[in-house]
Design a protein around this nucleic acid. Structure first.
Length: 607
DNA sequence: TGCCCTTGCGCG
DNA sequence: AAAGCGCGCAAGGGCA
């Protein structure tokens, strides 16, 4: 058996990598005994856009680690595979691993769900440092916590992959992707660089878990809750969303036919593609006057973003340019749907699903985020959300909190004027409209703007009203809502961070000049507390009805639920019940809607 | 080719 | 006194 005697963070570390056929089960069980708490990591082949759910994805090794000893098991050896399985199945053994990657891989390969017994160090890291987005990968963390050897081993593996690739491809370097693809698939499972890299990971992870818990500022109940939410997120990713493939292909075909046609027309006439940044120069030569046209702030060139191309039609263009302008407008109207449907189809796995990632604690405010594809920002209007349908025999139900951020803000501030209106079933935007004597749309903008820490400049810009008027409105708002103003001042005085209603810690973030953005704290308090409330409802769904697993997707202030066809009423009632409660004397309300299209088919969109 | 940054836009 | 908040993704463009 190959054994590395090495050092990690100034402490001895041992990595055992048994060769196929020479596995010592007793020695393994001695180091990694059932009932313990172990770092866990898996090594697989290169991951495509479909992640663990790609038919071609497979794990090659699995590693378990204590704080000083790791075992790297080669899964081509049936004995080692059996030992790994037995340990993973043991209900008394706990694991920690970084991100959902390992939990999902284990479930895909063996059907074992360890998510209830796995602590995600990525989640712990987000709790310890909510403001350090993108810097919580395991290598960076290990380095920060005094274990630079992990990053070094990673670098050595990269070099090895390049070497392996060149050996097999006449010395050619290949692209990053091709090197990774080749390297992960073919590196020998007994190569010392590979086994050392693989072995250090679970040891580092196991050491990091308690360090991260200690360095965070959250009380223990938050950790418990986040572990639960993270488990739910893993379940949602594993299940994925069923795709209506006919619907999606139809959408792609109809939209792509238009974009291809218009793109070809534009290129024929101008020599530029529709999206070329130089297309404007052609218009310039054909009578366009860009002196008062919106410009890209970076290049200073005319910008064809948004609805800007429509402005071309107001110009004195020659007939040819007018035709191109119309083609460009048509192209842009269909481009978005093409990109989105292509992304969905790219992620489609052979089970007909898209396993979008749901990050249970991504934002600084702990709001969840979705990626690959991002389901949380698919347009509400239009047919794109309709690509996603419930499982056979099921129906989707959606329930939104009613104006939750404004209500939470009113409650936290103790703003009685607002609270009275909420109790009376009135409209907060209308209240502002009446009090400040401004139109309701402007009042609505003002309500949100001020809750987000904005000021007169922002109102001026966004509402397109004169700065003086914006200043007047802001002053009026502050005079009218004195308690909101008081809360704003109180929050601005907190230079380190704030605590939400569940005592979650949210740090003050810095602007590009390094100054604390204390003005954002009101929004942090409101946004993050609203996140607490959504999780609160989700947990109620579990404790009152045992229905947490019915959640199909959370969208900030909205829960989408999948219900069996014959229990729709029951699920609707449960959802309404769990999302309706009193918060600090303010009613929080939600109503459940069944999502069924005009043909009686349930899909993720309104009829 | 690869990396990094910005802009614009969808959602809340 | 003033300061719009949180995300992810595509595309463009500078740079090595």
């Amino acid at each position: 058996m190959a054994t590395h005697q090495t050092s990690l963070g100034g402490r001895a570390a041992v990595v055992h990598a048994p060769e196929s056929g020479s596995f010592d089960a007793d020695a393994f069980a001695h180091d990694i005994a059932p009932g313990g708490f172990y770092g866990l990591d898996v090594e697989g082949v290169y991951m495509s856009e479909r992640g663990q759910f790609d038919d071609d994805f497979r794990i090659r090794m699995i590693q378990f680690g204590t704080v000083d000893t790791a075992w790297v098991l080669d899964l081509d050896d049936p004995e080692q595979d059996r030992a790994a399985q037995a340990l993973l199945r043991d209900e008394s053994t706990w694991f920690c691993s970084h991100t959902k990657m390992d939990t999902l891989s284990v479930r895909v390969r063996w059907g074992i769900d360890i998510s209830g017994r796995n602590t995600d160090t990525h989640v712990l890291a987000r709790m310890a440092a909510p403001d350090e987005n993108a810097k919580v990968d395991l290598k960076t963390l290990a380095t920060r916590y005094g274990m630079p050897e992990l990053a070094q081993a990673d670098k050595a593996l990269d070099d090895l992959f390049l070497e392996l690739y060149q050996d097999a491809h006449d010395g050619k370097k290949g692209t990053i992707r091709s090197r990774a693809e080749y390297g992960w698939a073919t590196v020998p499972t007994d190569h010392p660089v590979y086994t050392l890299y693989a072995g250090l990971d679970p040891i580092a992870c196991r050491r990091l878990a308690p360090m991260l818990v200690k360095s965070g500022k959250n009380p223990v109940h938050i950790l418990r809750t986040e572990h639960w939410v993270s488990r739910q997120a893993t379940r949602i990713v594993y299940d994925g969303m069923l795709v209506d493939q006919d619907w999606t292909h139809d959408l792609l075909d109809t939209n792509k036919r238009v974009t291809d046609e218009q793109n070809a027309l534009i290129e024929d006439v101008t020599g530029y593609k529709a999206r070329s940044p130089k297309l404007w120069t052609w218009f310039d030569d054909h009578g366009a006057d860009f002196s008062r046209f919106p410009k890209s702030s970076r290049t200073g060139n005319p910008s064809f973003e948004k609805d800007n191309p429509k402005l071309l039609l107001d110009m004195e263009l020659d007939a040819e340019a007018r035709k191109v302008a119309e083609a460009l407008i048509e192209f842009k109207a269909h481009q978005y749907a093409v990109t989105k449907t292509e992304e969905i189809l790219k992620r489609l796995t052979s089970d007909g699903r898209v396993h979008a990632n749901l990050n249970s604690i991504e934002a600084v405010t702990a709001r969840m985020s979705s990626s690959g594809p991002n389901l949380q920002n698919l347009p509400k209007k239009g047919p794109l959300r309709g690509c996603f349908i419930p499982d056979p025999g099921h129906v989707l139900i959606r329930s939104d909190f009613e104006q939750v951020e404004l209500r939470v803000g009113a409650a936290l501030a103790g703003e009685w004027r607002m609270i009275d209106v909420i109790h009376a079933g009135g409209d907060l935007h209308q209240l502002t409209s009446d009090e400040l004597n401004i139109p309701r749309p402007l009042a609505k903008m003002t309500n949100f703007l001020l809750a987000y820490g904005g000021g007169a400049n922002a109102l001026n810009r966004q509402a397109g009203i004169p700065l003086e008027q914006a200043q007047g409105i802001v002053a009026g708002y502050r005079n009218t809502y004195t308690q909101i103003q008081r809360l704003t001042r109180r929050m601005a005085g907190l230079t380190e961070g704030i605590r939400t209603i569940s005592q979650r810690w949210v740090p003050v973030t810095l602007d590009s000049a390094g100054n604390p953005r204390t003005y954002a704290s009101v929004n942090y308090l409101i946004q993050s507390s609203a996140r607490d409330l959504l999780v609160h409802s989700w947990k109620l769904l579990e404790t009152r009805y045992g229905l947490a697993d019915a959640i199909w997707l959370p969208v900030h202030d909205e829960l989408v639920v999948q219900a069996p066809e014959d229990r729709v009423d029951e699920y609707c009632a449960a959802l309404s019940d769990c999302m309706t409660f009193d918060f600090w004397g303010v009613p929080i309300e939600a109503e459940a809607d069944v999502l069924v299209d005009a043909n009686g088919v349930s899909r993720w969109m309104d009829a």
